[in-house]
Amino acid sequence: MSKEDIRSDIEAGCNDAADRGKISALSEDAQERLLEILIAPERVASVEPEDTVVFSTDNGYHSLYGNFSEAGGVGIPIDSTTANMLMERAFGFDSVFYGWLDFSFKSSKAVITQQQQEIESILTNTLSPLIYGAMPNLGGYYKPDGPFDNVGDLMAEGKILEGMETYEKLVDHAKNDIVWVSEQVTRIGTECINIDTTASAGDGGFLSSLKACEELKKRTGLSIEMGMASEFVMGIHGGLEYEGNVLAGMYPHKQVEMAEKAGVDIFGPVVNTNTRKSTPWNIARAITFTLECSKVANIPIHPNMGMGVGGLPMAEMPPVDAVTKASRAMVELAEVDGI
């Protein structure tokens, strides 16, 4: 791409976010700064030392021992304690992490004792705060894995009201599982729960996570991070509300307001990568959405910047220059507190 192509894509990416989110586009100065970062010839970009941020994670040591594309895992046969010690001591991660590989609260219930043992081992061998992560994953509650008819199938058959009623019932089932699993891992000293990939199954997933957060705060006072699944809350139901606010259609700067009301301590906005557009377009768009979220937030903002989100390319091995330039630009221009 030429410099002018990149400048043009930056402007278009900003404008796309501004149009969709009804928010301000990045200033001309910020767009020029982003251009400077992106066209720098170095392979690795970085922020200045005093601007460094901290990292939480929904993946962590899975990147070493996982062997599936979404974790970017390299399939090293290694246990969770050793992997976390490597993440902490060798790679300088700011937090340690545990999550069952299936990564759903519902499926975690059956193996909770195994998880408690592994978490206990990590806690006694590391220094950094431990985050436990899992997803609400409402899809796991549909037959044959769960008790409910598939809401998508019901609606496709024209049974709209029946589908909506079923979806409403799902919310409390998912909420109860999030609370139960979180309480079990808190019993042995887990310090933070990452309710991750929130709203992947739409507004019901968001509502179940918010309600779980509210309940956990009252019962345990536990620190809670909420990571989203996408930039936009899908209206599978369409009418679900939290504190009088319709959840469907919310973008990150509105999502964070709901998260704060529920008691969330760290919010992880997602901006999806559009694979038909260039990396500059996607980074500019991600920064525009995230900056607005950061401006209205009173709690730390840790944007998701893994494969296919936060402006990063959709690739199992994203190029180092793309990752580090996106990382630098996000920290410099979107006023984030971490990643």
């Binding site: 690795v44 970009a45 970085s46 922020v47 601007d51 460094t52 941020v53 901290v54 990292f55 994670t57 993946n59 962590g60 990147s63 970017g72 993440m87 902490e88 001591r89 790679f91 300088g92 991660f93 700011d94 937090s95 220094l127 950094s128 910047m305 893994g306 494969m307 990063l312 091995m317 994203p318 180092v320 990752v323 580090t324 330039k325 990382s327 630098r328 996000m330 920290v331 990643i339």
Partner: peptide, 14 residues
């Protein structure tokens, strides 16, 4: 990717 982020903008933990 994790290491790349760490080098670009991380405080580097302990």
């Amino acid at each position: 990717m994790t290491v790349a982020h760490g080098m670009a903008s991380g405080m580097h933990g302990v």
